[in-house]
């Protein structure tokens, strides 16, 4: 029931409150950023992943405000609601995808997001230098966005990709783990 409600909310917001831009503009812009980072760090993909995560973090800490303004959402009751909200409303209104929330751990602190489609990765084929396939997480910016956004609403999380269709895996899967609730609001660290 709750899931259906958030799906509908996401759909409504997507139709009424969201300004759309050309998908290829986003795809090509993001692709260029990643390609440029790879060039700048001389294909040190660990560094590239970190930088993407940081960029995402800096987006996330702002984007959450936009999200709350657009959606006027109330506080989520538990982490499962949060996951639902991220997938059905958050990803819906910003990327028009709804990744599947699955693989919950028993303590409800860790789940996976399965991306059926990923607008950031259209057209992309990873470089065939023998390392990118194993080291680069092309869409790693999304991990940072989630970390930044949730940190601003008192949730400290850790997110990372565990598989990516671009690498030849069957699915694109991101693992999100709740580390702790932030009790006292701290100033955000300066990345």
């Amino acid at each position: 029931m709750a899931a259906n409600k958030s799906t509908r909310q996401g759909e409504d917001l997507w139709k009424t409150r969201v300004e759309k831009v050309n998908a290829e503009l986003v795809t090509l812009t993001y692709g260029t950023i990643v390609a440029q980072l790879c060039a700048d760090y001389e294909n040190d993909y660990t560094q590239v992943n970190q930088q993407l995560e940081k960029m995402g973090y800096n987006i996330g800490v702002r984007l959450i405000e936009d999200f709350l303004a657009k959606t006027s959402m109330a506080r989520c009751g538990n982490f499962r609601d949060t996951a639902d909200m991220i997938s059905k409303v958050g990803f819906k209104i910003f990327l028009n995808v709804t990744p599947t929330v699955t693989n919950w751990t028993a303590d409800s602190k860790s789940f996976s997001l399965l991306f059926d489609e990923n607008p950031l990765a259209d057209f992309v084929e990873l470089p065939d230098d023998g390392r990118a396939q194993d080291e680069l997480w092309f869409s790693n910016i999304l991990c940072g966005v989630l970390r930044g956004a949730l940190e601003m609403v008192q949730m400290s999380i850790e997110a990372h990709f565990v598989s990516d269709i671009l690498r030849g895996n069957d699915t694109t899967e991101m693992r999100v783990t709740l580390l702790r609730m932030i009790e006292d609001e701290m100033p955000p660290e300066d990345d």
């Binding site: 795809t27 390609a35 084929e125």
Partner: peptide, 19 residues
């Protein structure tokens, strides 16, 4: 056209993509 849109493909390079 799709191959040209790949951000890791440099325009003018040999097309190595197995796809």
């Amino acid at each position: 056209v799709k191959t040209m849109m790949n951000p890791f493909y440099k325009i003018g390079d040999e097309i190595k993509s197995p796809a």
